[in-house]
């Protein structure tokens, strides 16, 4: 009996705990129904398109520009978050200041605040008569309804990814390394550049990639502030929605598969980066 069970389920180790068949089966079924089957519908619909049709859709100037805006500005926003997110982590982990716990908690606001709320708040803030927009207007800087506005929204939603990825790694960093560097005569700048930064670099890159991945697909917080001018400030997710509303399903599907493919590639890269980050730096316990 025991051997029969073992040979039937060779892909798992035998255990006295019951319920594997039931829970594993339910997990797989639910996963397929909610996630895998719907996702494969997208690829099925894309494969129905001829290659020429796909090429026409993807080489459309409006499509190309939307993709360029989405990927380009997401990259810029992730880079800004890499610098300022890194700075925020440094200040939060290393320094003491009043209301530090409150400041630490509000980092998660972009995670918790619904994107539509963030969208209308940022738009109003940076509009010409808004709190910040009215200060920038005399300088000739317009944020709301321009690509700059998209950048602001993408910085907002990406920040916690960098901070929350790097924070535990910097907190766990062995302080003795820095003491050693200092006692060997390194200046503070050298210690940070050559000892601290290499240790947190994999985590910083992971956070950067996560912020980028999130920004590429972001919709809610961007569409209010973007102005959504085709060819100027139109992001790829919005173009998918517009094509869908025009009943141009082929176009919507093709753009969506490109974006889905990009997110799979990013997911793979983030996965590798996380392995790298865990294999070095202060993660050993």
């Amino acid at each position: 009996m025991a051997t029969a069970t073992a040979s039937r389920l060779t892909f798992r180790k035998p255990s006295v705990i019951p319920g594997f068949g039931l829970t594993f089966g339910l997990t797989l079924t639910w996963l397929c129904l909610i996630v895998l089957l719907p996702l494969s519908a997208l690829f099925l619909k894309t494969s129905e398109l001829s290659f020429d049709r796909l090429l026409v859709i993807m080489s459309n100037a409006r499509t190309l520009h939307a993709l360029q805006i989405s990927f380009g500005l997401s990259l810029a926003a992730a880079a800004i978050n890499l610098v300022f997110g890194g700075l925020v982590v440094w200040v939060l982990v290393r320094y003491d200041f009043p209301f530090k716990r409150v400041v630490d908690a509000i980092i998660d606001i972009p995670f918790a605040l619904p994107t539509a709320v963030a969208g209308i708040a940022l738009t109003t803030l940076y509009a010409e008569n808004g709190w910040i927009g009215s200060l920038l207007a005399p300088l000739g800087i317009q944020v709301s309804f321009t690509p700059l506005g998209i950048l602001v929204a993408l910085v907002f939603i990406g920040l916690p990814f960098v901070v929350r990825t790097v924070q535990p790694v910097l907190a766990d960093l062995d302080a003795e390394l820095e003491d050693a560097a200092a006692s060997l005569g390194a200046t503070r700048g050298q210690t940070i550049w050559r000892v601290v930064l290499p240790s947190i670099w994999p985590a910083l890159l992971t956070g950067f990639a996560m912020a980028f991945a999130r920004a590429v697909g972001e919709y809610g917080s961007v569409i209010f502030i973007a102005g959504n001018l085709p060819g100027v400030s139109e992001i790829a997710p919005l173009l998918i929605v517009i094509r869908l509303e025009e009943f141009r399903y082929a176009d919507a599907t093709a753009i969506a598969s490109v974006m889905l493919l990009a997110s799979f590639v990013l997911l793979f890269i983030i996965n590798r980066l996380q392995h790298w980050a865990e294999s070095r730096g202060g993660r050993e316990r």
Partner: peptide
């Protein structure tokens, strides 16, 4: 996986 899929794409797959 759903974390890395754009919300718009998530909606679209159900429409498809």
């Amino acid at each position: 996986l759903p974390f890395s899929v754009s919300p718009v794409v998530a909606g679209l797959i159900y429409v498809l």
